[in-house]
Nucleic acid binder design. Structure first.
Lengths: 341, 341
DNA sequence: CGTATAATTGGGAACGTTCCCACTATTAAT
DNA sequence: ATTAATAGTGGGAACGTTCCCAATTATACG
């Protein structure tokens, strides 16, 4: 007769045990699907009691005891950026099956915010972290003691799993594609974060020029910040040249789209007067006129792969070497590139 | 000498208490910032011990005891959709300050998935839920016993807080704007979800025609699914009319952008030959040529407001009536609308 | 039928907090 | 100086699981 009156609140496994005439241990076993070690009859009795009482498993209590939370923290510069929300989607979709939830944080390229999320991950004993670090260093990440995967291929994060795109290969193939279309004078709008990144693309540009015996012309390469204004400025500079390029490669689609818009506003016909190629393949590239030809990054797949590496670390038995997984970029032809006329 | 050897693992408040020469109760008080009831000296001793041991608060244990998790579940059809990721951003930014984390789920317009996330929210004793329900009913939501806010203005969710955009007002003003620009023959590409939604826009269209004594022409209104293909088809139908519209209003920007692209591919000059106006103001609208003129929804603000309503429910003392908060849409002129020539 | 073994089950202890209540110093009031 | 009130502190129970080990029951085998 004990818990007849007190239980206005949510029932616990003890209530279930009582109702089923077994011990809480047995209920726990049923809950964990420990099929092997509980008699079918008992199992039935327990499940019936569970349904009857409307029992719902308390994940919090379970977390405390098992020290496993089935929570993963995702830290990106900005989840509202279509690039990262695609990655997030892949991560979530893959982690959902084995029962993990994903908390997303907007690091905002801000050291304090990034650290705040890391702190949350530690305090809440998260099982894993996926992060595109902008201000956070390797040591800080390692110090959490939480399995972590770096989103993007970056130097200075030895010992951590990494998954991102092969920007060198992507940039190189983009340039080669323009070359094959007959272009020889190729402009390069090079986006730069505050933190040194994107070196790969610049290296690819240099390497490309070398391989094709093209004379490097410094005026064809313009460095700008990674945003719309940067793309505008980059294009304006290139258009102001006495000897204009016939094609332009931009470090990412934001830059490329802004550049294309700027060229169009200046009265140029893309691709007839000027070819443009970008990188990433974000959402809006299909919506412009013409559509933007670009080297697509496997964003969704990046998320999926990151999730898989994370799961290996979290649930894996034997610890293995850190892996560096660079997914290849792929050309998507839309309409912003034409043969040189 | 007790915990000298066992503590290879993370230190607990008991370890801290020992190191500081106080009881765990006192440490707990310090941790909770209960400044009033602990002497400055003791507080200092405790904080010093915390730093020395590298103690980190265990949120899980705290959750179990307090029955508060500081977690909120966000369920949208798709977080990779730029509309929802903006909303998510607003929600997160607002919830971050008071210490809440947001778990995002992609409902995918799938009953099972939506329910799975709801289950996670219950099992993990989440403090709040923000959802744009597609297949989930009011009763299910109320049954969770968790404070919930509906994203979007919807019928059939009485008793629940709601925050979204005033689509009727938005659509009406969009049409009025076209009218003021001299357009009289206005096409309407009406997006439809499987579940009845978007009625408001259709009503606004009807009401608009009536107020301006415009003869309703059924051929000017075409219903399509809410995606790019829908926008294409809608525009093709309108272009095929013997008596074409001079302007087109589309239910959202996805449709409008696809429609604009289709018109351009058909050789029309937007806005000279045809004006187009959309709704939502998603990311890509600024990147096309011309930019898409649209009725902007306050996406970020929707998230913020939803967060505020949720916080009121979660932390609020007195319970209040359910609120319905319809944020007004606002015209953003870009370049896809011109006066009728 | 008795014993050895395996299959089930039960009973605490533990996870690391918070909260209530009791207790001891300290201060204020008479 | 004595008592009353207050500020500060400590100790234990509780939150709801899981897990280890012991106890019980069923099965197998001779």
């Amino acid at each position: 007769m004990s818990s007849h009156f007190k239980t206005t609140a949510r029932p616990t496994i003890i209530d279930v045990a009582e109702a089923a005439g077994v011990s809480k241990s047995t209920v726990s076993r049923v809950l964990q699907g420990d099929a092997a070690s509980v008699k079918p009859d008992t199992r039935r009795a327990v499940t019936r009691a569970i349904r009857k009482l409307g029992y719902e498993h308390n994940a919090i209590a379970s977390m405390l005891r098992t020290a496993r939370t089935f929570m993963v923290m995702l830290i990106t510069p900005d989840i509202a950026n279509p690039f990262w929300s695609e990655v997030a989607r892949g991560l979530q979709d893959t982690l959902e099956r084995p029962g993990y939830s994903v908390v997303v944080g907007n690091g905002d390229q801000d050291s304090e915010r990034e650290n705040a999320f890391l702190k949350t991950a530690r305090r809440n004993r998260f099982d894993g972290i996926a992060i595109n670090p902008t201000k956070i260093h390797r040591r800080t990440l390692l110090a959490t003691g939480i399995p972590t995967v770096i989103l993007g291929i970056r130097d200075g994060f030895a010992g951590l799993d990494m998954v991102g795109s092969d920007s060198f290969q992507g940039a190189f193939e983009a340039l080669t594609y323009l070359y094959q279309m007959g272009h020889r004078r190729i402009g390069f709008i090079d986006g730069r974060y505050v933190t040194e990144q994107g070196r790969a693309r610049a290296q690819a540009y240099a390497e490309f020029l070398k391989q094709h015996n093209l004379e490097p012309d410094p005026s064809l390469k313009v460095e700008v910040p990674f945003d719309r204004a940067g793309g505008q400025r980059g294009m304006r500079v290139l258009l102001s040249l006495a000897h204009r390029p016939t094609a332009v490669f931009a470090s990412n689609d934001i830059l490329a789209l802004a550049a294309m818009q700027t060229a169009q506003e200046a009265g140029l016909n893309v691709p007839r007067d000027l070819s443009i190629i970008g990188m990433d393949d974000i959402y809006p590239t299909a919506m412009t006129m013409p559509g933007l030809t670009t080297m697509a990054k496997q964003k969704y797949e990046t998320g999926c792969q990151a999730a898989r590496l994370l799961l290996e670390r979290i649930e894996g038995t034997a610890l293995r070497e850190a892996r560096r997984c660079a997914l290849p970029c792929q050309l998507v032809e839309r309409g912003s590139v034409a043969p040189r006329s």
